[in-house]
Amino acid sequence: MAWDAAGGSATLRDVAEVAGVSASTASRVLNNGGQGVSNDLSVRVRAVADALGYVSNQAARALRGHRSGVVLLASDPRTSSIAAMAAGMEEAGRERGVSVSIAAVGPDADAHLAVLRILRGMRPLALVVTSASFVGTESARILPELEAAKREGANVVFIGEHEYDFPAIRFDDVQIGRTVAAHMATLGRARPAILTSQGHPAIEGRTQGFLEGLTARGYDGESIPVESSEVSRAGGYASTNRLLRRRERPDMILAGNDVLAIGALHALRDADVEAPGDVALSGVDDIPIARDLTPALTTVSLPFLEAGRAALALALETSMPKDVHLNSTLVTRESA
Results as ranks from 00 to 15, higher is better:
201 P>S: 15
227 E>P: 01
289 I>N: 08
206 R>C: 04
225 P>T: 14
198 Q>P: 03
229 S>E: 13
258 D>H: 02
204 E>P: 02
269 R>A: 13
207 T>K: 06
287 I>F: 03
199 G>Y: 03
213 G>R: 00
273 V>N: 04
209 G>C: 00
263 G>E: 11
203 I>G: 04
260 L>I: 11
273 V>T: 12
269 R>V: 04
219 Y>M: 02
241 N>P: 03
232 S>K: 10
233 R>I: 15
242 R>C: 10
259 V>P: 00
297 L>C: 09
260 L>E: 05
252 M>S: 09
217 R>A: 10
201 P>E: 07
246 R>E: 14
209 G>F: 00
199 G>K: 03
249 R>W: 03
256 G>L: 06
270 D>I: 02
295 P>N: 08
279 V>H: 05
199 G>H: 02
270 D>A: 12
249 R>K: 15
295 P>F: 05
257 N>G: 11
265 L>I: 14
198 Q>C: 05
204 E>V: 11
265 L>P: 10
237 Y>R: 15
287 I>R: 06
248 E>N: 07
290 A>V: 07
272 D>Q: 09
227 E>S: 07
204 E>W: 00
220 D>H: 12
204 E>K: 01
284 V>T: 11
287 I>D: 05
227 E>N: 03
277 G>A: 12
221 G>R: 09
286 D>I: 06
269 R>L: 10
261 A>V: 10
219 Y>R: 00
216 A>N: 13
207 T>P: 01
231 V>Q: 13
246 R>A: 15
282 S>V: 05
249 R>G: 01
202 A>S: 15
274 E>T: 04
253 I>Y: 03
290 A>K: 03
248 E>Y: 04
212 E>K: 00
294 T>C: 04
210 F>V: 02
247 R>H: 09
248 E>K: 07
209 G>P: 02
234 A>H: 12
284 V>H: 09
297 L>M: 08
265 L>W: 10
211 L>W: 00
216 A>L: 14
263 G>I: 06
233 R>E: 14
269 R>Q: 12
239 S>F: 05
261 A>I: 08
287 I>W: 02
200 H>W: 06
290 A>W: 01
271 A>D: 13
202 A>E: 13
292 D>R: 08
259 V>R: 09
252 M>P: 01
223 S>R: 14
195 L>Q: 05
272 D>H: 03
216 A>R: 14
281 L>D: 02
296 A>I: 04
290 A>C: 07
285 D>S: 13
204 E>G: 09
211 L>E: 00
273 V>L: 04
281 L>T: 04
262 I>Y: 11
268 L>G: 06
211 L>D: 02
211 L>T: 02
274 E>W: 00
233 R>G: 08
200 H>N: 12
262 I>N: 03
245 R>Y: 10
266 H>T: 13
198 Q>W: 05
194 I>H: 02
290 A>Q: 04
290 A>R: 05
